[in-house]
Every structure is written in structure tokens, then in C-alpha cells.
Design a protein around this nucleic acid. Structure first.
Length: 886
DNA sequence: TGCATCACG
DNA sequence: ACGTACGTGATGCAC
């Protein structure tokens, strides 16, 4: 027997609004990997599931408002006037809501000049005329006017899960009115949210009383003479036209020119693959597991035919394939030391795998990897290269590096896991390592060969499947050069630097260790005496109690968790109690001790007395590198005490020295270039001291000699502030001046450098229009929050828009220099080795005899890496240790 | 695991 | 009226 026909009609806009505000508090938790807000989509989906289970419809349509202009605004220009703009965090979700519906197999519909209500009213009445029953879902009580014997109106309550069902009986019970009288009610009382007035001074209460007596608006005016003379009666007479107009506005149309046929709305069910890919796009993990429970995907995914490689069958492999996808699996992040797990290869859609990585040393595998004729596709070339190097295999070229490419496509998405990345790009057959191996104590490498090899094979398959689409995207973004000429060659350069490592004078560190130990215990004793008790000095919480409760020092600043005891606070308390100075000293030395003495000693390799950092090439949002394990980009230099740590960084061979070159003010030069500010460009062309020059200009001095050190210091801070996307408050905090004074500085600065001012305004505008900003080499950073209605988020995005092209372009430039540098050293057969990069500085070791060559060569390569509108300036130094290279 | 602190450009 | 500098990593504490 045929199921009874049930039509479900949903007011898309109103339900989306409800869902959005129900989850408004968690707005920032519902953001997907592209920065899209997803709370309304999430809530809508939950609600939709509820309704589908409750109603069991056979036919469905979701109606949307077509736009601001409707027949109602024609009749009453201020209809829905004064309503605040839909938040951008919601409006950006509407296109995806339609995508969700499409995956659910549900029709979305809108009609020019009509609101969603009218589409619903029209379809409901058409459906009733045949043999349908109808359920309407909305967040708007006005729609209860549509309730009939065959039509139920479900109004969502506060959350997204609860609904209130309005039948004519329920309407009667709640308002003592028939559904049709709701329209009359609105006509009399008006509607604040739709911004139409109704009759003056008549509200809900009076309107209800009148309707109970006369039945309708028309009824009231027919029986006006029965109403006693009163202010209200005068208002009724005066506002008669308004009353009928408002009634008309409230009346939902049931004759709109809707083009869809109800029979076409038959629901065929959800489209599972479309839904999976949509949930992935939205990062809705819980919904994903809901529709594909844990074991299902494994079962559903086709098992790949993997051939297990052994000594005995290596000879069966082709001698020189055109393309090989390769994965070298290791246990742990630190690929300099991580144990090998195994490897896989995909060649002509055939998969090979083995646990024994020694096999890679034999032909033909070694030949493939070292050949320049075989295209190697992989994930994380640097990691692979270092791993292979440990096996004595020299990977010479990579064709496609999935990790690098996907980082360039979106620098804010810096996941380091092949499975996660592949899923984000729509390829779902491969799971994340965390999911496959487990995490922390649960980490386990499967002993079952087939299980392990399937995972590895899925990885290489993902690499080859994603190669073409991602390279296409790169092309579309005009980023192919950035990949081919900068990032890919750089990964090989970085690998070489990491492998080279830098030698540590552990004896020097051990000396410092005992020195510091002594000083620390002296200071500890002093502090405990002054405090009158022992406590944990390293605990800001306990220190706070001592300083601000026991010693009653004034509280300058608070943190989320209590009193702040940070340097800038302690600086202000200096002189109020001797303990403060001692704490500052203690902090300084304790930091050196824990991070740079014992910390560094912990990571020195026993094999070669060197530290081998890892540069993370795909992490920062601006394009800079970062350095981990150990971080060699934050070795102390500013304070004399800390600077001595650099004495422990020494050349790896006797008779060699450390050589260092750094760009001078590269970020300001980039700013002068991108902003095209003539004044700033001229300063750099003239080769003047830029900070002193800025000081002269903002303090209105005639002569450079009049610039005091303090003026120069302040001007330098302004220059920095400009690069960071300045705010008067930030500047005032930084140099300890009033906010008003800071504001004057900034205004003066923009007067002097109008091009910079224009650039800052322009870049924010560009970011708003295109959604991202770019560096000079087209590195891209998306800034979805630049349209946020939240002031803080938006301001942050604006400052980022100003800063990223500057910081990022500087990063591009030094990367180009590094690649050329490495090539030149090889071409000239120099023994010198490039060891470290510290954002605007390159550090080498070289035989003393080569130092004069480097003094010439390195600055030449660095300052000619790009050609800007201003010259680049490079300064060099050398010495027996890193400390002495100053 | 998150927070506060502090090291660098 | 809002509340703020940009980009990182390591350490130790407290939950």
C-alpha cells in the first residue's frame, strides 16, 4: 500500500537564524579548516535530522528569501527596515547550507519578490487541495496562520532540538484565535521585528480583546459605532488605512507564482558520498563517524593489491619507471634518529611494500631514487631525503611533494599528517597516522604485515591521486613558480643544512652550567630570605602570593589565572623591594640554564657532538621557517649574559671559523618597495640610518646631529609598529608614552610617508575583497576573519593583512638567497657549509682560507636575490665561535 | 593539556 | 565604545 503523502516545508532563512544564534556562544569553535563558520550549518543539520525522524515526510522543500526587495517593500518601503544586517558569519554559511541540502537530496527554492513564507503558503495550499498532509518548519510564529486540519506548523524553540507544534486547536488554546485571525492580530498590533506599526497604542492585549469581540479587522471597522468614544477609538479611526495595510503585509500569500511541482519534490533520500565529502569539507567529524562507523570505511575501502618485496623478488621490478610514488615510514617526528617502519612504492598502479628498508639500498630501488630520470612523488621530501641519507641513498630530485603543495595552497592549514591533508582535499580512503597507529601510550605498529602495508599503500595512492588536482590549483593561483623555484629546491637545501648540523662545545656549556648553578642557588637563598619563607620560585602563582599578598606590592597587571609577574610588571616594581631585582636576575639565569644550557646539552648528538635542528617548512602562516628540536632561531643575543651561550657554537673542524651575514632592515626595505613610498625609498637609496632619519622627520629636526638616542629609539619603535600593523595603544605600551602621544607619532609618520599610509589602507581593502593577501612571490595567506563583525577578530585580521606581505616577502627573499647560495658553494667547490638560517641571517662554517671569499660572495648573493625598488644591504662578520661572529 | 613566561627575528 | 602590536618554540607549573 502507498504510504500517506506528507509534504515537509522548511523556512530556510528562519531556521538558519535560529540555529546560528542558538550556537552563537560557540561561534569560534565552529570554524572549519578554511576559516568558514559552520555553527548554523551544524545546527540546521541537527534540526533537519530531528524533523525527518519525527515527520517521516515523502516530499520536501526548503524555501529561502530571495533578497531584500519584495512585493511587501513595494507596498511599504520600510518593511523590515531598521533590522540589523545579517552577520557575515551567518551569511557566509548560506551557500553551504544549500550544499548540505543538496547532499540530503532536498530541493532548495527561492522566488524573486517573495519571501520564503509565501512560497511555503502557496505550496501548502496546493498540497492540501490534493491528498497531502503538510508540516511546516520555521522559527517564526507568524506562520502559525497557515495551520489547518491538514497543515501543522512546527516552530523551533530556543535550542535547535525542541519544536512546538501548532495545530488550529493549539493556536486556539494559546491565543484564543483561529489561525486566520493571527493576520488580523498583526494588522492591529503591528510587528516590531518586521518594522510595521499597526494601530497607534494598540498592542497585543488590546488587539486580542478587539478580535475576541469583533472577529477581524474588517469586523472592527464595520462595528466601529459599537465602540465607546475613547482615545483608542480615535486611534482606530485615524489609523484605519494603516491597519488594513499591516494586515495585508502580515498575510502570507497562497498564490505566489511558484514554478515547482509538488510531485517533483519527492524525497529519494540522502546522497551518501556527497554527504561524506560535505562533512569533511565542514570538519564535522562526529557526523562522519555517525554515517560511517569506525569499521565501515576499512571494510568499504577496496583492499589494495600489495606485493611484498624481498631480496629474492627485487629483480622482477621494472628497471626505470617514469613515475614512482614513494613513502618512507618512520616512527616519530625526529627523522634524524627515528626508527624506520617500512616503505611503499606505487609504480604503474602496482603497489610494493616492505618493512626492511635495507632493501632500498639494492638495485633497482636505489637507482630509481637516485635517478634524475624517474619522477619521485611523495609527502614531505625533506623528511624522506634525510631518512634516505641515513641509508646511504641520495634522493636527488622530487617531482611532487604533497606536503609542500598543500601548504602553499593554504598556509594557515599546517597539518603535518598525510591522511588528514588528503581528507581535507577530498581524498578519504587514507586515515591519519593517529587513527592508524594510536597516540601516546596507545601507539602501536601493527605486527600484521598486510594491515601495515595497506595503510602505507593508501598513502602512496593518495599522493598520486592528489598530484594532478593540486598542481592544477597551484597553477590557478599562479603559485607554480613559488613551488618549483623556491619551496621545492629549498627543501633540499634545508635537508643538507640539517644533516650538516652545528658543532657544540659541550665543555663550554658544562662550565656555564656550574657557573649558573652557583648563581641560581645564591639568588634563591637571597630571595627566600627576603620573602621570609621558601617557595617554588618557578611558579608564577606562588610568586604572586609572595609579592602581592605577603609583601603587599601594588598589583600592576592581572592574567587570566591571577597576578601577572612578567618582566614589564617586575620592572615597574623595581626599587620598591630588593626582592624584585633578585627575582629578575633569577629568572634570567634560570631561563638560560634550563633552555639553553641543559636544554641544549640534552639534544647534542653523541655521534658527532652536533645539534641537528629540523626546520619546519610548512608551518608558519607568513612563509617563514621555524626551527625545532632544538630551536636554533632563538639563541640569546640581546643581553650580554645570554649572548655567551653562542660561545658554545663552534666550527666542526680545526682551522675553521663561523661566518655570518644578515640583511639590514629587510622588512622596512620590503615595505618601501611594496608601498612605493617615494620618501622612504629615497632614504634607503641615500643609505642613511633609517631610524635616525625617521626620528628627524617625526620630531621635525633640521639636522641629523640633533637626534638624541632616545628619539632614535622611539622612531625605531614606530618603524616596527608600522610593520606590525600599528595601533596607538600598542605603540604607547611598547615605548612607555601616552596613547595621545603615540597617536601623534603615527599621524606624523603617515604625513611623512603618505605612500605607506595608502598602502596600509589598500592592503586591508584588497584582503576584504579577495579574502587573502600575497607576498611578492605570490605566497598566499587567507584572512577569513577580516569580515568578522567581532571587532577584535577583524582588527587582528587587518593587522595581519598589513604585516604578512612584509614579513612573508622578506622570508621569500632569504629563501631565494639560500638556494642560490647552496648552488654557488657547490659550483665553486668551496668547503664552506651553510648551517643555519635565522629569518634575516645566514650562518656558515668555513676554513679560514675561505673567509675572504665568503665576505665577498655571500653579501653579493643575498643582496641580489631579488631586485627591489630599493637596495638590499647585507652585513657580515666572522670569528672562532658564533659569539665572535659579531 | 593550557597557561605564563621569555628567548629570537 | 570596543581593547591591541607581527611571527615563532621551549620550559615549568597546575590541573
Amino acid at each position: 500500500m502507498d504510504k500517506a503523502k506528507k509534504l515537509l516545508l522548511i523556512d530556510g532563512n528562519s531556521v538558519a537564524f535560529r540555529a546560528f544564534f542558538a550556537l552563537h556562544q560557540s561561534l569560534e569553535r565552529f570554524v572549519n579548516h578554511d576559516g568558514l563558520h559552520t555553527n548554523a550549518i551544524y545546527g540546521f543539520k541537527k534540526m533537519l535530522d530531528n524533523i525527518l525522524t519525527q515527520v517521516q515526510p515523502t516530499h520536501i522543500l526548503v524555501a529561502f528569501d530571495a533578497g531584500k526587495k519584495t512585493f511587501r517593500t513595494e507596498k511599504f518601503s520600510d518593511y523590515k527596515g531598521g533590522r540589523s544586517k545579517t552577520p557575515s558569519e551567518l551569511s557566509e554559511q548560506f551557500p553551504y547550507l544549500r550544499k548540505l541540502l543538496s547532499a540530503y537530496g532536498i530541493t532548495s527554492y527561492e522566488l524573486a519578490d517573495y519571501e520564503a513564507d509565501d512560497i511555503i503558503g502557496t505550496l501548502a495550499s496546493q498540497a492540501e487541495a490534493t491528498d497531502f498532509s503538510v508540516t511546516i518548519v520555521t522559527g517564526d510564529r507568524d506562520l502559525t496562520q497557515l495551520a489547518t486540519k491538514k497543515t501543522t506548523v512546527a516552530v523551533t524553540q530556543k535550542g535547535v532540538s525542541e519544536i512546538e507544534l501548532y495545530t488550529p486547536a493549539h493556536v486556539q488554546e494559546k491565543y484564543e484565535l483561529t489561525p486566520q485571525q493571527i493576520v488580523d492580530l498583526k494588522g492591529l498590533a503591528g510587528d516590531a521585528s518586521d518594522n510595521y506599526p499597526g494601530v497607534t497604542k494598540v498592542g497585543q492585549k488590546t488587539a486580542l480583546r478587539l478580535l475576541h469581540q469583533f472577529g477581524s479587522v474588517a469586523g472592527i471597522y464595520e462595528h466601529l459605532d459599537e465602540i465607546k468614544a475613547s482615545k483608542m477609538k480615535e486611534h482606530l479611526i485615524e489609523d484605519q488605512k494603516v491597519a488594513f495595510l499591516c494586515r495585508d503585509l502580515a498575510q502570507i500569500r497562497q498564490d505566489a507564482p511558484v514554478e515547482v511541482q509538488i510531485n517533483d519534490l519527492k524525497w529519494q533520500g540522502k546522497n551518501q558520498p556527497e554527504l561524506i565529502s560535505f562533512f569533511e569539507e565542514m570538519d564535522f567529524r562526529s557526523f562522519l563517524t555517525e554515517i560511517q562507523p569506525e569499521n565501515q570505511p576499512v571494510a568499504a575501502i577496496e583492499k589494495l593489491p600489495v606485493k611484498v618485496l624481498q631480496e629474492s623478488n627485487l629483480a622482477d621490478l621494472p628497471t626505470q619507471p617514469a613515475v614512482v610514488s614513494f613513502q618512507l615510514e618512520m616512527n616519530g617526528d625526529n627523522y634524524h634518529t627515528a626508527p624506520f617502519i617500512g616503505f611503499t612504492l606505487a609504480v604503474d598502479q602496482v603497489f610494493y611494500a616492505a618493512r626492511n628498508v635495507e632493501l632500498l639500498k639494492s638495485p633497482p630501488l636505489k637507482n630509481w631514487l637516485e635517478s634524475s630520470q624517474v619522477k619521485i612523488d611523495l609527502f614531505d621530501g625533506k623528511r624522506t631525503l634525510v631518512g634516505l641519507q641515513r641509508l646511504g641513498i641520495h634522493l636527488s630530485a622530487v617531482d611532487f611533494d604533497l606536503l609542500l603543495v598543500s601548504y602553499l595552497l593554504d598556509t594557515s592549514d599546517n597539518s603535518n599528517d598525510l591522511g588528514k591533508l588528503a581528507q581535507q582535499h577530498g581524498y578519504t580512503a587514507v586515515v591519519s597516522d593517529e587513527e592508524f597507529y594510536g597516540r601516546g601510550a596507545k601507539y602501536q605498529i601493527p605486527s600484521d604485515d598486510q594491515l601495515l602495508f595497506q595503510h602505507l599503500a593508501q598513502k602512496v595512492l593518495a599522493i598520486s591521486k592528489l598530484k594532478v588536482p593540486l598542481l592544477k590549483k597551484l597553477q590557478a593561483n599562479q603559485q607554480a613558480d613559488l613551488y618549483l623555484k623556491i619551496e621545492k629546491p629549498l627543501s633540499l637545501v634545508l635537508a643538507a643544512m640539517e644533516i650538516a648540523g652545528i658543532k657544540i662545545d659541550t665543555q663550554r656549556l658544562t662550565e656555564m652550567d656550574s657557573e649558573f648553578k652557583e648563581k641560581i642557588s645564591e639568588l634563591e637563598e637571597l630571595i627566600y630570605q627576603e620573602a621570609g619563607e621558601k617557595f617554588n620560585l618557578n611558579s608564577p602563582k606562588q610568586l604572586g602570593v609572595i609579592l602581592f599578598e605577603k609583601l603587599k606590592l601594588p598589583v600592576i597587571k592581572k592574567t587570566k589565572t591571577g597576578y601577572s609577574t612578567a618582566v614589564d610588571v617586575l620592572e615597574k616594581l623595581r626599587g620598591m623591594a630588593p626582592i624584585v631585582d633578585n627575582i629578575l636576575n633569577y629568572r634570567q639565569i634560570a631561563k638560560l640554564q634550563s633552555t639553553y644550557v641543559t636544554g641544549l646539552l640534552k639534544v647534542v648528538s653523541d655521534q658527532d657532538q652536533k645539534v641537528h635542528t629540523r626546520y619546519t617548512q610548512t608551518l608558519t602562516a607568513t612563509g617563514r621557517l621555524s626551527s625545532v628540536d632544538p630551536n636554533l632561531q632563538n639563541i640569546p643575543i640581546r643581553l650580554a649574559e645570554g649572548r655567551k651561550i653562542r660561545q658554545a657554537f663552534v666550527p666542526s673542524q680545526p682551522g675553521w671559523q663561523i661566518f655570518s651575514s644578515d640583511y639590514s632592515q629587510i622588512e622596512l626595505r620590503v615595505l618601501a618597495h611594496v608601498s612605493q613610498d617615494q620618501n622612504m625609498q629615497q632614504s634607503f637609496k641615500d643609505g642613511v640610518d633609517i631610524h635616525a632619519n625617521t626620528a628627524m622627520k617625526i620630531f621635525g629636526l633640521q639636522d641629523a646631529n640633533e637626534v638624541t638616542p632616545n628619539m632614535r629609539r622611539q622612531a625605531k619603535a614606530v618603524n616596527f609598529g608600522i610593520v606590525y600593523g600599528i595601533s596607538d595603544y600598542g605603540l604607547s605600551q611598547n615605548i612607555g608614552i601616552s596613547r595621545a602621544q603615540a597617536k601623534k607619532f603615527i599621524e606624523k609618520y603617515f604625513e611623512i610617508f603618505p605612500g605607506v599610509h595608502d598602502y596600509m589602507k589598500q592592503i586591508v581593502k584588497t584582503a576584504k575583497e579577495q579574502g587573502y593577501v600575497e607576498t611578492i612571490f605570490k605566497r598566499r595567506r587567507y584572512l577569513p576573519q577580516i569580515k568578522s563583525s567581532n571587532y577584535n577578530l577583524r582588527s587582528f585580521a587587518e593587522r595581519t593583512a598589513m604585516n604578512t606581505p612584509i614579513q612573508g616577502s622578506a622570508a621569500d627573499i632569504i629563501k631565494v638567497a639560500m638556494i642560490r647560495m647552496q648552488r654557488t658553494l657547490a659550483e665553486k667547490h668551496l668547503q664552506a657549509k651553510m648551517l643555519l638560517q635565522v629569518h634575516d641571517e645566514l650562518i656558515f662554517e668555513a676554513p679560514v682560507s675561505e673567509i675572504p671569499i665568503l665576505e665577498e660572495l655571500v653579501p653579493k648573493i643575498m643582496d641580489s636575490a631579488v631586485s627591489l625598488a630599493v637596495p638590499l644591504k647585507v652585513e657580515s662578520a666572522h670569528g672562532n665561535t658564533w659569539f665572535d661572529a659579531k
